[in-house]
């Protein structure tokens, strides 16, 4: 009798946890290879631990136990895009390291915000993602050059939205990928057109 009660209790627990709407998503982002428009700079990039291990979490009535792992795939995107922008780019493990290596400047990306909108929330047929970064750019000795405030927006295509009823994750991966594509595009273009960066490049000893 005792054994039967325990089995019944375990079954109830399983049912309860199974009904809970949870989302654990590991993004695998992919963007096209950019056209090489290299600036004559030898750069370093420093990924802070908070960025490397960034996981978007949310837990409320509509979004139960959401955990979207973005850290590794966003670093893969920076690693893909940055070599097309500069003569050289190297990853450093701490900012002090930059001082001894004769880099022209160091890039420190910081994720500020990420938001998602689901079809039933916006009464549209698409998933949407917004991401916001501050790209800190400083000299090797730590002197401030500029901060680029960049945002990326992405949405899933409406014609695949029927699939999303079956697979919420697919919609979120597509919209997040598009948002990172948009962000990376703005990063490349901003680096070539930002007045503070251009001024610093001009003023640099040749």
């Amino acid at each position: 009798m005792k054994k039967l009660s325990l089995t019944f209790f375990l079954c109830c627990l399983l049912l309860l946890t199974a009904c809970e709407q949870s989302m654990v998503l590991e993004t695998n982002l992919d963007i096209p290879q950019p056209i090489d428009t290299k600036l004559p700079l030898n750069m370093a990039i420093f990924y802070e631990e908070s960025l490397r291990e960034y996981v978007y979490t949310e837990n409320n009535d509509d979004r139960r136990n959401w955990a979207i792992t973005i850290g590794p795939s966003q670093i893969a995107i920076f690693d893909q895009v940055l070599p097309s922008m500069f003569n050289t780019i190297e990853t450093i493990n701490n900012l002090d390291e930059a001082n001894y290596q004769h880099y022209d400047a160091v890039i420190v990306p910081e994720i500020k915000d990420i938001q998602f909108a689901l079809p039933y929330e916006t009464k549209t047929k698409i998933h949407e993602t917004w991401i916001k970064y501050i790209i800190h750019i400083q000299k090797a000795d730590g002197e401030f050059i500029t901060d680029l405030n960049l945002s990326g927006y992405g949405k899933s295509l409406p014609n695949t939205s029927i699939d999303f009823l079956l697979d919420e994750r697919e919609g979120l991966v597509i919209s997040t990928n598009e948002a990172y594509r948009d962000l990376a595009a703005k990063l490349i273009v901003s680096f070539q057109s930002d007045p503070a960066i251009n001024e610093w490049i001009e003023a640099r000893p040749k």
């Binding site: 963007i31 096209p32 056209i35 948009d182 595009a185 703005k186 490349i188 273009v189």
Partner: peptide
């Protein structure tokens, strides 16, 4: 658009 990335994307 993909082959000209990022210069012909919607925002750029």
């Amino acid at each position: 658009i993909d082959s000209m990335y990022p210069y012909f994307d919607p925002s750029t």
